[in-house]
Nucleic acid binder design. Structure first.
Length: 431
RNA sequence: GGAGGGAUGGCAGAGCGGUUGAAUGCGACGGUCUUGAAAACCGUUGAGGCGCAAGUCUCCGGGGGUUCGAAUCCCUCUCCCUCCGCCA
């Protein structure tokens, strides 16, 4: 959520930012917010004046009654004021609710240095690591390798749960578990994150806090009778850990790493990535979430991205990192990097981590603040923290990348050295 | 699932429907005293909206209601606790 004061004072700037984000009705949205905000403040002034009068009158009633005098006249008069207040309050609540819901639909604005662009084709590559493997045979896609090794079972996954579900078995199941443990170990032991194991079901409020509701409800699975949602990412429960809290400046930065399964309906993805485990309804992911002071958030974004990249380096997987242009930045971010792993069979890099700074966008929605210290070290007024998050990494896609990058001509797959201890020393997966 | 009890400021804990945004204690911060510290004493100490400001309004788990007036009464939701049932 954006600061209403910013919209009020710089509406044209906001409209321009929304246009860069390719938001078609951005200007109309801003105008509607301005209109509602104006109306809200007008009502507020009027109703507050009436309430003041009522408060004074009520105290007058109290005085009269105490001294045993008659108060019926003033009570009658105040009753009318009360009715007027009820009417205005009702209208005020309506306007307030409308304003709130509009505000929740307005995307975040981008940081000033983000490249302007229409879509992902205008993202800017900012780094590249590792040598793309050369094969003296035609590299096979991970779904073929996985089935041949009898570690991925698509058919039975579909039987049990439908399309875009799969089953891991044997070494496959263990590899998945190994990756999760490995990633969490690196982030906690080397990168200083605190491990969190959150609930996989969250309430609507939590989804609103991170920006997954009200606009993107179709993307997630909802449990209708219970107002619960299956987490689309650990970002949702972990960010909401500190909802409605005021943190001490000394606690920041707070860095959490959490594994969860992630559930996504992929409603708009019909026909895309239908094969393999790149795009499925349930996948595992280790997520990093940071709560930081505003001055440090862009430096924290850089280190967050590095923390994700280092996992790939330790796993010997080639990747590149792109900075998202305004058109690809999405709803919540001010600035974001995608880390993309090399997938030989697709002959391309595919997103395996997305690292974003949201500045105060989520903090404002979820009311997560901290108490800054002034020059003399005294605690001041609460301010919103900046929140960032990034995948570290998408486990299923890492699994696929390992199969494809380390495949041998005979169908076996080499296990990267860093992962071997997590697989009982296994060096190669063989048929 | 059934039966009860509860939710108040950073924490603990009062609060006959009428100067209660809220006693008191602890904590924190500032000061006095001290070579320094402790103790003692004094003072300060919630959040938000509108407003240039003075100020004003709102908030005692959330929402709604009764009333001239609600932390206090009523309804409802959420969460927590105790007992029973069920259960990995």
């Amino acid at each position: 959520m954006l600061d209403i004061k910013l919209i009020r004072t710089q509406p044209d700037f906001i409209k321009e930012c929304l246009a860069h984000k390719q938001i078609a009705d951005g200007a109309a949205l801003v105008d509607e917010v301005l209109r509602l905000d104006e109306r809200r403040r007008t009502l507020l002034v009027e109703v507050e004046q009436l309430k003041r009068t009522r408060n004074e009158d009520s105290q007058q009633v109290a005085r009269l009654k105490r001294s045993g005098e008659d108060a019926t006249e003033i009570i009658t008069r105040t009753r009318e004021i009360g009715d007027r207040i009820s009417t205005l309050d009702a209208e005020s609540r309506g306007v307030e609710a409308a304003l709130e819901s509009k505000l929740l639909e307005i995307p975040n604005i981008h940081a000033p240095d983000v490249p302007i662009g229409a879509d992902e084709s205008e993202n800017v590559e900012v780094g590249r690591w590792g040598d793309v493997p050369q094969f003296d045979f035609e590299p096979r896609p991970h779904w073929e390798i996985g089935e041949a090794l009898n570690i991925i079972d698509f058919e039975r996954g579909a039987k049990i749960s439908g399309s875009r579900f799969y089953v891991l078995r044997g070494v496959g199941a263990r590899l998945e578990r190994a990756l999760i443990a490995f990633m969490l170990d690196v982030h906690t032991a080397r990168h200083g994150y605190t491990e969190i194991f959150p609930p996989f079901l969250v309430r609507s409020e939590s989804m609103v806090g991170t920006g997954n509701l009200p606009k993107f409800g179709e993307d997630s699975y909802n449990i209708p009778g219970d107002d619960l949602w299956l987490v689309p990412t650990a970002e949702v429960p972990v960010t909401n850990l500190h909802r409605d809290e005021i943190l001490d400046a000394g606690e920041l930065p707070i860095k959490y790493a959490a594994y969860t399964a992630c559930f996504r309906r992929e409603a708009g993805a019909a026909g895309r990535d239908t094969r393999g485990i790149i795009r499925v309804h349930q996948f595992n992911k280790v997520e990093m979430v940071k709560f930081v002071t505003p001055e440090t958030s862009y430096a924290e974004l850089d280190s967050l991205r590095r923390d994700a990249e280092e996992i790939l380096e330790l796993l010997e997987l080639p990747y590149r990192t792109v900075e998202l242009c305004t058109g690809d930045l999405g709803f919540k971010g001010t600035k974001a990097y995608d880390v993309e792993v090399w997938l030989p069979a697709q002959d391309t890099y595919r997103e395996i981590s997305s690292c974003s700074n949201f500045e105060a966008f989520q903090a404002r929605r979820a009311s997560i603040r901290y108490r800054p210290l002034d020059a003399g070290g005294k605690p001041g007024k609460p301010e919103f923290v900046h929140i960032l998050n990034g995948s570290g990494l998408a486990v299923g896609r890492t699994f696929a990348a390992i199969l494809e990058n380390f495949q041998n001509a005979d169908g076996s797959v080499r296990i990267p050295r860093a992962l071997q201890p997590y697989l009982g020393g296994l060096e190669v997966i063989e048929v």
